[in-house]
Design a protein around this nucleic acid. Structure first.
Lengths: 192, 192
DNA sequence: TCACGAATGTGATCTACATCACGTAACCAA
DNA sequence: TTGGTTACGTGATGTAGATCACATTCGTGA
């Protein structure tokens, strides 16, 4: 699907915008393409954009001690990604974003988002809704972390992102679940 | 401080509202008081309000198997609490909210929030900002869960809620950290 | 098409934390 | 005051998952 059509469908589910208003909204987005493995945000960068995924898959992750990687979120088409802590607080990135596969995305700068949010009430409404969903999802994941064992979380992940199962390397799935790749391997080989 | 003044100070940091607009905004809130231990939202309830804490302390928590309790959030003055998943999706509560201490709060119904958000752009702006903060905090906590050991998370908690240290029972702190009360006890007795 | 690094599987240990069990101290309510 | 519930401390033991070590397979670029 065309980038514009995909974003339009996504936004109009929540916000009532005329065609002209949507066109104006859309004019602030910039299409970008990235290759598999390419980095979009690196730790230490100044962050001034967020990204809407049209095609492909991104991952937002944190790296500890230059060694262990923890994936906060996979971003599939119609999902948004950035280092929001850095974006909103205007601090340097502590989170990395890069491409699990070749990706086609739309970028939106922080200042443009704030501008169109203040210009169009419905756009602000849309972004409130979007962040709400993220908040609820993050809380749910937090609970799952505290409450469920790794196997259950593995099954939840496959339910949430069925497309991931055969698309992304297992060690990334382990990094999302917060377990070692060895444990993950034993887990799904044992459960057969 | 008066409830109205506290809310006003909190909101005006983000939103530009005239006195009349704030008065109108405030007219949708309803003051309520609760006793220590009293329940505000119970699992299975229909949820139609969120709560702004004026005084005291609430906890939002999940109970598994009628046995283990996990605390999602403590809510101190100027913090908000509810079961947001239930509130936004209009489903039954899966999360409980109750009072760690006697509490004075302001309640706001879901429909009133949506109404004033659509009536006053600045109010919508405020709630977008508020949820953003919650989202970023939830992500940060998620990362801390994956990355840090219990001792580090214990120290983070004390930094985040210094007032909690001597106010709330240790087993609630354990429930926030996601460890058993025994482990927590050994932990801070060992580190002396 | 070959080769080399990345991804994956699997065994052997090690460890943080859960769980069970029990004792003591603090806090209300009659 | 007293009796009972709730909070807290601490030992003994069990276990999920980390870590280390190495073998195997896969994928991608020259």
């Amino acid at each position: 699907m065309q980038a514009k059509a995909l974003l339009k469908e996504h936004v109009l589910k929540i916000a009532s915008l005329t065609d002209d208003e949507f066109d104006y909204f859309f004019s602030h987005f910039k299409p970008e393409t990235f290759k598999k493995g390419q980095s979009i945000i690196s730790e230490g960068d100044a962050v001034d954009k967020e990204y809407f995924v049209i095609d492909g898959c991104l991952k937002a992750f944190f790296v500890n001690d230059e060694v262990k990687m923890y994936i906060l979120q996979f971003a599939m088409p119609t999902w948004w990604a950035s280092d929001y802590a850095a974006l909103y607080n205007k601090t340097k990135a502590t989170i990395n974003v890069d491409c699990v596969s070749d990706a086609e995305i739309l970028s939106l700068s922080n200042s443009d988002r704030e501008k169109i949010c203040s210009e169009l009430h419905q756009v602000e409404h849309f972004f409130r809704w979007r962040t709400n969903r993220g908040y609820v999802a993050a809380q749910k994941r937090l609970l799952s972390f505290m409450n469920n064992d790794t196997k259950t979380r593995y099954e939840e992940l496959l339910a949430l992102y069925p497309a991931l199962y055969n698309t992304v390397p297992k060690h990334l799935i382990a990094a999302y679940l917060g377990v070692s790749r060895e444990t993950l391997s034993r887990l799904y080989n044992a459960s057969k």
